[in-house]
């Protein structure tokens, strides 16, 4: 099926295209040469501007992250009811200070205690 008849180029160009093309290209090549090439100083200025923008952005991000309000608490949020606080105080006084115990005691706060603490805080 791929015979010689199909080899004929089916595409055409606008009239006299190849007569005009060399002068179009010649004109463009002259324009191209006249175009100011970026020298070293403008390049440095451009690069410098970009660097400053980046530095400023990073600085602002650092400032934002440094503000106390923006620092998320790393530990789990636990609402400790007054009862549990006093229990913890008791434990401390008795010399049974143990961070893990305190943590576990706090962790064992159940939902009811949390709700109670919340309602007391509102009062």
């Amino acid at each position: 099926m791929l015979n010689n008849e199909l080899k004929k180029n089916p595409f055409v160009t606008p009239g006299s295209y190849f007569d005009r093309l060399p002068s179009i290209i010649q004109d463009k090549s002259i324009e191209h040469k006249k175009r100011p090439q970026f020298g070293l100083v403008p390049k440095l200025a451009f690069a410098g501007g970009g660097f400053m923008t980046l530095a400023l952005t990073l600085f602002l991000a650092f400032l934002y992250n440094s503000t106390p309000e923006s620092v998320p608490s790393s530990g789990p949020k636990v609402i400790v009811s007054d009862e549990i606080k006093s229990r913890m105080e008791e434990i401390r006084k008795k010399g049974l200070i143990d961070a893990k115990v305190n943590y576990l005691a706090v962790r064992n706060v159940n939902q009811n205690d949390i709700l109670m603490a919340k309602s007391r805080n509102k009062e």
Partner: peptide, 28 residues
């Protein structure tokens, strides 16, 4: 070389306008 290059490009991009731009870019 303009005709050979133009037709080579034209067969790839199909459009005359695109081929026209690209053949000019090629020579530049």
């Amino acid at each position: 070389y303009q005709e050979r290059l133009y037709w080579h490009i034209r067969k790839i991009v199909i459009s005359h306008d695109d081929a026209d731009d690209l053949v000019q870019n090629t020579f530049l």
